[in-house]
Nucleic acid binder design. Structure first.
Lengths: 233, 233
DNA sequence: AATCGGGTCCCCTGTACGGGGGAGGAACGA
DNA sequence: TCGTTCCTCCCCCGTACAGGGGACCCGATT
């Protein structure tokens, strides 16, 4: 099935270069060329191409803002591939956050650009290898499981339990009710926790617990279903 | 320059298939084949190939554990490419967290596998497009700046300032000193913050601030201990 | 049998905190 | 000019909290 394309770049020469590349592929149909981001947004909304190839440096509206606007509109089914000379990390993050299906550098060989377009058209994504390396590094740390501080070992199981309840901003009375013990008991536990961890307040304890990842503050995004067991033929 | 390779897969047929693919490339030199993860680790340490291609499902030690062991040893310069049939998200995260230079599916066309090896050998990384899509989704949310809850708009600048100090587990007296105002003033601000946000305690305020990302909860670099009493000069 | 750690409960004390009120001054726009 | 908002400061009162004692029970260790 043919893939319709929109090319957005402020350099006419580069656009015709890309067009020449894509014209060698019968299944790639270049339906529009624009020279700025604003035109890219309006033309995408009008022509609904399968894939839009956007440069970042463009007049009126840069490619990242255009990407965001295009992908923010649920009426658009167009996949966005960002094609740029600069691979600044901030650019990458912003493009991916907006939901781009590709982040490619203009140094990419033409045939790989072509295959990247096909990848994007079928709903997959492709990131330039030179960018991927840094992306992995960033990603690895951002999803790294929090390392529990060693001083937690000093706490008994009951004390850790109490610490988590403190972190949940529960008062001593609430903790007592939840644990089915007297509030004097809770006071003892709390005091021990504070003493063992070197914390002044229960307020400090709350901050401590959150800063050390004892509280699950992961914010899940809409539609992000983490599948654990998907098979691919 | 030639690239030396180690292949690890428990299926001999698949190994010979890969070897046949790589043998078509004069610059790819397949120096070892192993059938389990433990052998992969020892052979990598012994032969120091440029790139190790590891399957995940392997006896004795699975490919992910092998990846972790190989990349955990700083003496190894070997790049690891994970090549698997299963693209479970957990596998991907674990491989990338360990520092893999590639996560590829066995459905990848041979010529792309070859180019992926070269990509890994030169220090870049490549992720299978079908995986990249989900990775982007996950990454986007994990680095997405937390959206400040709307009720924060009700707070004045001063009150927000106080809220952040509360979140840092500072007492009223400390806040007063830091802001160069009387502690009675701080009490007023705190009361207003609690009232406007519908919070009972300053304890609740601390939890609220942390859960809503008002506090820089970013995982710090390895070796950096998150302290609860961070104060700015 | 004696000891110890962990969990439970109780007392007393001082303090920080939160709620209620009031009030002055500066900056801003109506 | 007036009124509003914001920041500032003050007083009183009740409560939750933290520290420092002590005490009991129980299971495991010695």
């Amino acid at each position: 099935m043919p893939v319709s394309l929109l090319l957005a770049d402020d350099h006419a020469m580069l656009r015709s270069g890309m067009r020449a590349i894509f014209d060698t592929q019968p299944d790639l149909d270049c339906v529009a060329e624009v020279a700025d981001g604003r035109a890219a947004v309006t033309e995408v909304a009008r022509l609904r191409p399968d894939v839009a190839v956007l440069d970042i440096r463009m007049p009126k509206l840069d490619g990242l803002a255009a990407t965001e606007q295009i992908l923010a509109d649920p009426a658009n089914r167009t996949k966005v591939v960002v094609l740029t000379t600069y691979d600044s990390d901030e650019y990458v993050y912003r493009a991916l956050r907006a939901g781009a299906s590709g982040f490619l550098l203009k140094s990419l060989p033409p045939e790989e650009l072509i295959s990247a377009i096909r990848v994007a058209a079928r709903g997959d994504a492709l990131i330039d290898p030179s960018v991927t390396q840094r992306l992995i590094a960033r990603f690895a740390t951002s999803i790294a499981p929090p390392q529990p501080p060693p001083e937690l070992e000093q706490l008994t199981a009951r004390e850790r339990e109490v610490l988590l309840l403190i972190a949940g901003a529960h008062s001593n009375a609430e903790i007592a009710a939840k644990l089915h013990v007297g509030d004097e008991t809770v006071k003892t536990h709390v005091s021990r926790v504070l003493a063992k961890l070197g914390l002044r307040d229960r307020v400090h304890a709350v901050a401590y617990a959150h800063l050390n990842g004892l509280v699950d503050n992961q914010r899940l995004a809409p539609g992000t279903t983490a599948r654990t067991d998907r098979r691919q033929p």
